[in-house]
Amino acid sequence: MRPAVEVEALHRSFNRTGGVLHGLDLRIGAGEFVALIGRSGSGKSTLLRALAGLDRGVDGHGRVRVPAKVSMVFQDSRLLPWKRVLDNVVLGLDGRDARERGRRALAEVGLAGREKAWPHQLSGGEAQRAALARSLVRDPELLLADEPFGALDALTRLNMHTLLRELCERHRPAVLLVTHDVDEAIVLADRVIVLDDGVVQSDVRVELGSRRDPADAGFAALRRRLLGALGVDVDEDGLVHDPDPDDLAHDRPDRSRGTDRKTDRTTGRTTGREGA
């Protein structure tokens, strides 16, 4: 079967100050859930925007093929404040059954009864659910998500993970999810791709079945492997070792201390000395 997304030798750069994507290749199968992780500046968002067709005016070349129906979920819900929730969900749709479909999509994300609410009356999690409904109602063959849960609190985020998995199993779009959270990537995805300096650095299939427990040995091993790919040294107990600055300078001259903070953010809640 032909993959849903094909990217070949994709180059992108902003204002000649160095490229962001350097000949990136990527394939996503129909119905496949791919999570994209990488340090800040590794080109995650640039790749996502290229797939969404939002990078007009950006220098670059390469081949990108995406399905006809692409939906995007942003980090902010991006609901129009002057439209009620249902009107936001069906924005730009026409046809007699559009509102009915919108209502069904809202019910699916657990927002039945909130059709007439204004966006400012929703909590952060509810707003993001509405944004998901806005994407789903368009029956996307490809769903692009740019850190959609990044601004949510931990508990809401867990609920959203469950919801997103259910929705994707039912609707089977191809998904490309950009995230900073390695655990989130492992919990949700069929495949995790680590992006580094504009190319795919690792491409790991997640073979943990449908019940994924962070306390599981397989889960921990995969997390360690991915964190390693991100340049974070983790031992068996999930402890991050303080990288020796001299070592770092020797092995990876491009990774100075300034990026350590970003790496910490990337590892999210799985790291941290107090977590042991």
């Binding site: 969404a52 942003f74 991006r78 730009g92 806005r134």
Partner: peptide, 16 residues
């Protein structure tokens, strides 16, 4: 301008 970006991703026409 993020609303314009949203409008592009959901394929709104100029009039809409």
């Amino acid at each position: 301008s993020r609303y314009a970006e949203l409008a592009e991703t959901i394929g709104l026409g100029r009039l809409a």
